[in-house]
Structure formats: structure tokens, C-alpha cells
Design a protein around this nucleic acid. Sequence first.
DNA 1: CTGTTAGCGCTTTCAA
DNA 2: TTGAAAGCGCTAACAG
Lengths: 339, 339
Amino acid sequence: MENSKVTIHDIADILGIDSSTVSRALNNSPRVAKKTKTKILTKAKELGYRRNHLASNLRKSKTNTLGVIVPRISRYFFSSAIAGIEETAFKAGYNVIICQSLESLEREQSILDTLLANRVDGVLISISMETKNDNHLNGLKLRNIPYVFFDRHCNIEKNSNVVIDDFEAAFMAVEHLIDQKCTEIAHFSGPQNLEIYKNRFKGYKSALEKHNITFREELVISSSLMEKDAAENVKKILALPFNVDGLFCANDVVAIGAMKYLKEIGIKIPEEIATVGFSNETISSVIEPALTTINQPGSKIGVAAANLLIDKISDNTIHKTIIVQTNLIQRKSSLRTYK
Amino acid sequence: MENSKVTIHDIADILGIDSSTVSRALNNSPRVAKKTKTKILTKAKELGYRRNHLASNLRKSKTNTLGVIVPRISRYFFSSAIAGIEETAFKAGYNVIICQSLESLEREQSILDTLLANRVDGVLISISMETKNDNHLNGLKLRNIPYVFFDRHCNIEKNSNVVIDDFEAAFMAVEHLIDQKCTEIAHFSGPQNLEIYKNRFKGYKSALEKHNITFREELVISSSLMEKDAAENVKKILALPFNVDGLFCANDVVAIGAMKYLKEIGIKIPEEIATVGFSNETISSVIEPALTTINQPGSKIGVAAANLLIDKISDNTIHKTIIVQTNLIQRKSSLRTYK
DNA sequence: CTGTTAGCGCTTTCAA
DNA sequence: TTGAAAGCGCTAACAG
């Protein structure tokens, strides 16, 4: 019993019927008598039958496999996205091949080759920093293999993208600062050629507007958002002829850097920092003064992206952009404790 | 050109030879004339031939797939382990199915079923907190499917484990505390059914011994190492009739929780906290007072585990335990700044 | 509703 | 060194 080598033929032989009937029954086809079906399913269970996906897929010329390309698996946002993808894919009967581009376009290209060789049914991709367009996805296009960008996408028409609502997230973060009675809110912003930072900046501006706070050019400090930029950014703020009492960072790395530097020089302004970024819970819980606007968006995006891709696999004409909404992480207890 | 549907038969037909010869050539068999082989390989490349792994694997009844079970993908240690596994597996021509048990034995069991159904060639597993033994791996044993434990393992003979040198790591961490003149060092320890926590406890004890510090039962506080346990643990320490001046945490989650709680109640003891855990760099840079003993071991362990499993797949008699050595992360600048 | 038949694309004896 | 032939386990016409 429980032999892994049980095939539909074994079941057919024992029951004195044909293997095609067994196949139908196992696939829950309506073209099998209820009685026969029951008999077959019972016997299958008894023998410990397990479908051989290899054979099944060969016959159907489908692999039931999705390729996933991320810059780096170990970044929390991506690992949680993968968790969401895996779960969704699994439920739908798909396996997932996960690859990391390590922010290299060249690696991204060679990964696509490998995925092609593996005959994946579809691809989920979050592009590397080096990637400027989708030319290297030609192989997929040629073979009509659907793909969906998630989070990092090329700004290209007729593609499917799953992204976060950056405008809204930024808006919420800044509004939170305003609720805390901050009036001079600085913004550490990112490269304005990238959609996400443009939208976060817009959200910042819009929140100020809504609450009739004058927008000041000099409060917006643009950088590449590395931790090392943070000290410079903070210095610029401190050099201003008035006191800043709130800070909105366009990502968590620069927020962490800013807090570190502020601690280092023993200065406690600004009183509130908010950041839009993909912090993991552990980080968030350590950085008390920072408020992260995005509540575990990784897995949400992963789920949405996987679902969209699976839809596209059955109907490749679907093109859409899904904007995932985010929540403010509420950490009231810690937020105002250390003023 | 570049049609993905090129088969060995197409090549054979064009060249006027048999498909079996083509197959041999493509598999670099020595039983093909050099000239023919070159001809075949050239034509294959020209036509953009790609082997259909499905068919190949069906014939060979191998899936070239490894199953990986981890408690949670998004924990930094595991995502970096997965990165290492992926890379190693990929190079060796294996794909990887990644699953998370979410610390549930039940889920772990059902994942194993799924992996069996997927006919994986081998399994890498890091067990859940609930898992006490390897009984649920019976399906693998029955079918002679090799498996390797990594990081979290059952302490069972004749299994293959890839682990960190927990004893050594803990010893180093505690010795570091002693070097900082701590004498009353508490230990937040974990479930003693898990080898890793047992060994970290041993390392703690051993370091004390070496430096002639009396071991005190009441300084060891066992919990499930969740962040929520931390507050309770700290309370127990504070209730002691003497002052604790050092703290060694068996993992980083509880260390972070402890620091949070200490901050919250405005208490600055203990002066030094060390933790053995798999912190990511961002976390480490935020948690100044904590010293993490293990320097990015995840991918190291992943690579070692995948290699061992692949070895076992070809020779299932290999049984060994690989102990991966670790380094102390040095963060002198921050360590003593905020006392 | 069930059986017959013909492969999916590849590997691997066995003969030649 | 190459070819012929069989079949991995499953599915999907097509008949009946």
C-alpha cells in the first residue's frame, strides 16, 4: 500500500475498466457515471494513487509553473511578496520558480532564458535598477507567455502592473503628521524620474494643501535615498532658519539613516518621522518614532500579481494595472512616548 | 526561427538521422561520432532547440525538483537561506518548490504531502516550533526520498543536518558580555526541544564557567521567543533580588522585544544585550545595544544544505552533519555609545 | 457513459 | 556508431 508507483492503469486493471475512464473520473469529468466515479475514487485512495504531474503536463503541454524574478529574495518586501505569490500559485495548482536578478540587467536576461527553457506558463517580474525597458522580454512576447510586473515596473502601455498606491500612502503619512500638530514638515524625497517617488512627493504636497499648510520648496530635499544620504539631508534641515517639526521620508532606508544620525548628534527634532517604505515588522517595532504607512504590502501585492498572471494565462488579452491600497501601521503606544 | 516547439525529431528529420542519435548528442553521450555530434549541436542551436524537461523527466522519472520547507519565508534568515538554496540548486539543474509551515506541524505535514504529490527528488526542511520529531517524514522514508534538515533539526541519528555552530556562537556572545565587565548575565532561552536553543544555552553556561562566573538557575528564562514574551521575561529579571547587567538572548526577535519594553518603561538595564540570531543588516544598524553573533549565515547554510541534498540524491547512503561557522558582527562604534 | 486509439517529447534498451 | 522500437503516465479526440 501507499506505493507511489500506482498509475491509472493499475486502478483500471483492478476495476476491470479502461484507464481513460479512470482519468476522467480523477479529473472530475461529468462524463463518468456517478457510481463508477465513486468506485474509482475509492480505489484510488485505497491504493494511494497520486497523479503524475509530469505525464499530465507533458500531455497537456503545460508546466503549471510560474517564473518569478525579483531583485533580491532577502529583501523583506520581496520575500513577503514571494510568500503571497507562492500561496496563491499553490492554491491554483502552480509551482513557482524564484530567481533573483541582484539588480543586474544581464542576470535578468539570462534568468529569462532559463525560465523559457523551463517552459514556464507565465512570469512575474519586479525589474532591476538597471532595467529601463522591457526589450529583454521579447522571448516571452514571441512565445505568447504572459507576464505581470509587480512593484517595480517599466512605465509602458499595454502591460500589466501591480503596484502600491504611493500617492495615497504618502498622503496618509503626511496627514498623520499634521494630525500630530506638525506644521513644518520636511520631505526627504527620491529621484523624480521614478514614478513611485514622484507620486509620494505629490501625496506630500497634496496633504499639505488639504490642510492649508504652505508648501515650501526648501523643505523638500532630494537624494538617492541611501542611508548615507541621510546625514546630509538632516544637516540641510538643521541649517534652515526655522524649526522643522515633522519629517516625511520617501523610503525607510533614509528614515532609519536620519534617525540614526539624529541620535548620534543628540538632537531630537523632528518630533515625528513618517516614512513610506516596506519595513518589516521587526524594524518597525524598533524604530518607534517612525511611522510606516505601508502595512505588509508585500504579500498583498504578491497575491494580486499572482492572481492576475493566472488570469492572463487563461486569457492573454487582459491588460490591467492593479493598485494595491495600503494601511497605516498604528503604533500609538510608542509613537508619542519619547518626545 | 526560435520556435519553442522544435523537437529532437525536427532536428533528426532535417539531418536525415534518427532522433535517438540526436538525443544522445544532446546529452553529450560518447556513443556518437564527433562529426555527427557537431552537426547536431549546430543545427539545434540554429533552430533554437530547447529540451522539454517534462518529457525528459517523465522518461527518467525524475523531477529535478527539490522541496524546501521553512517556517516563514519572510524571516531574513530563511529568505537568505532560500537565496543560497536557489542558487545552488539552479546551478545543478534543479528547480525548487518553496513552502512555509508558519510554525505549524499540521501545515508541515500537509506540505510534505504536496511535495510527495509533486514527486520532488529531495527535501530541505527547517522544522516548525511545534515539530518534536521526524515521524511525519515517513512518506519520504518509504519512497526513499532523501532529505536534509537545516538550521532547525530534530536530534535524530542517521539524519543529515546542516547547522550553525550554535554553541560557539552563544559562547562568543556571552564572552563578549563578560569582556564588557558584565557579571550577572541573564539568558532568554528558547524551547529546549529544539537543538539550537539547547546548544545556545550550553554555550552560555560554558562561557560563564570559563570565566568563573557562577551559573544561576533563576537567570535563565525560557519562552517561545516571540516578541510578546519579551516583556514577561524582562519583568522576571527585574523582580530578581539583584541587578542584572548583561543579557544574552537566544534569538533576535526576543532581543528586540526586550529592548523595546525596556525603553518603554524607561529602564536602561541591562547595559549590554547580546543575541544569537539572524538579524538582517538594517535591523542590526538600528539596534545599537544589541550584538548579533551571526554574520549572514543564511545563504551559507542554504548552499551547504542544497549541496548535501544533491549529493544524497545520487547516493542516498550519505549521512552527515555540517556545522557552519559564524562570525561576530563588530559594531564597536555604536555598542557603547548609548549607555 | 465508456472504450479505443494515438500520441505529448524524450530516453534507452537491443540489434545492426 | 547508429537505428528501430518501446514506453514513461497521462489526456483527448473519436467512436460506439
